[in-house]
Amino acid sequence: MGYLLHRLLLVPAPLLIVITFVFVVLRLTGDPVAIYLGQDATPEQEALLRAELRLDDPLPMQFLSFLGDLLQGDFGTSIQHRAPAMQVVAERLPATLELVALGLTFALVLGVLGGIAAALWRDRLPDFLLTALAVTGQSMPSFWLGILLIQLFALELDWLPTSGREDWQSAILPTATLAAFLLPNFVLVTRAAVLETMREQFLATARARGVGPVRALFRHVLPNALNPVVSLVGLQLGRLMGGAVVTETVFAWPGVGRLMVAAIFQRDVPVVIAGVFIVALTIVLANLLVDLVQAAIDPRIRLR
């Protein structure tokens, strides 16, 4: 319980940083009204917004009212969609969560399997191939991989759609692209963690007691090697959401990432801010989940 409480207290920090960052950037430009309204705003609209944003108050007061509005879910009105910005973003969230969940699942499962295989065949051909593939994957721009997949499976072979989100088939290429973006790190970290555990004394003891190699792997090596892999999930969440923005853009996947990128070009600042806030919130909550899972599987963490 102590651990849970301690961990929950850390939740608001990244969110507060993001909000402060957004506030500072908006105010740095001098006149947020121009940013919010664009060029063809009437003086009346400007005066209205000026009062709404309380631009005549001192900065700390402005920050507090900014913070208060966000806490109430008030991110302003989308200029493009003519609806509350938060509502516009929330409508796109399921598509992003679907893509992210699929990509992470595939990356995790394949990455852990690949890492175990590389560790078991250490310094032999499978290890060499898997490690080489992982390092190449780390050097690969994910948007180019997406484009290569489109060329092969959509344009050449005509098996899968190039973009959009209609049936399950349209999810295949985006999922593959996002999974491939995360996969290399999971392979390399699992490999290192398994090799590390295999050097432990307790494993030699277990083997000497007559525990077979398969049982030793599943009962002794993997449970102990799991911890760094779960940590990596937490560390990768930021990259995962970043990768989702890119993947959504490549495949015209109607999620929050593509919405934000489009909103930048439409100068739709409320939508950008609401999107950034939602993505940051997703990362923070997912991170909390990862930490709780880790505490559940490893007593050393929750009893620290």
Binding site: P14, I17, V18, G238, V245, V272
Partner: peptide, 22 residues
């Protein structure tokens, strides 16, 4: 603690905010 919190924020979000404004 600041570094811990910062680690959770992807650079692409920062870029989106900054580019949207500047």
């Amino acid at each position: 603690r600041f570094a811990d919190a910062w680690q959770a924020i992807p650079e692409i979000l920062l870029a989106i905010v900054v580019v949207a404004v500047f």
